[in-house]
Design a protein around this nucleic acid. Sequence first.
DNA 1: TGTCATGTTACGTA
DNA 2: TTACGTAACATGAC
Length: 274
Amino acid sequence: MPELPEVETVRRGLLEMIKDQTIIDVDVYWDRIITPPFDSEKFKQSLVGETIHTILRRGKYLIFLMDHWAMISHLRMEGKYKVCPASDPLEKHTHVVFTLADGRSLRYLDVRKFGRMTLVPITMIKDKVNGLGLGPEPILQCFKLEDFYQQLQTKKQMIKPALLNQKLVAGLGNIYVDEVLFRAKIMPNRACNDLTKEEVERLHHYIIEVIEEAVAQGGSTIRSYQNSFGAPGYFQQSLRVYGHEGDPCVDCGQPIKKTKIAQRGTHYCPHCQS
DNA sequence: TGTCATGTTACGTA
DNA sequence: TTACGTAACATGAC
């Protein structure tokens, strides 16, 4: 699930379901999900009695703002939240359960247990989020073309791993990087400092466009055996290269290729991208 | 049985 | 300092 559009979709859904709910109990079934300096016991003690006032997002991080604490949560590969009656039996791979005052529970499920969550005093949340070292959000107001171009000029790294690095611009993952590079007609193995100003402008434009479209469609549901909660994503129907190895390119009809760049599956059209 | 998989970080090495 | 490869995390699908 989790690149920026999916995390944003989760945020909106959760906010609708659990805004102003008070946590009356917390159970942690896999300790490593909770990151130091908190352990499961301290995590639970801190959260009982807290009310969830709002939920924010920065890059791929969810930020739950409560009375005294903020919870920062990263879904990594397969983390999911769901809200259900507290009496429902626990599904497999349920690692954290927040029991709410209204008889429901917020549950965190994660097949691979890669996701992480931690608490920060509410007064420290700004510093903590700034300390994550994330680049700008991929929206017009935050993501400045000139800064982006200057940053790329200093890197001889390939563009694909550079875009996956959250410091350059926040929120892109493997799927959206492939889609953005396809729309911008740039090969994923091009060196950053070799891109022309025009190419960087296209890249900048399509990063904003793809993320915006994907958010509008509720993200992409890829390889998901079940929808975590609420609406599934529909953007996977709009993916042009990711998951389309061997299919004809929507622009030229040549087969889409798949290779490996920076250890990640990478989809591209050898004819349209250069 | 082996390979692959949406993310991030730590570590060793060049 | 920068960059890159690899492993680690842990499980399931094919």
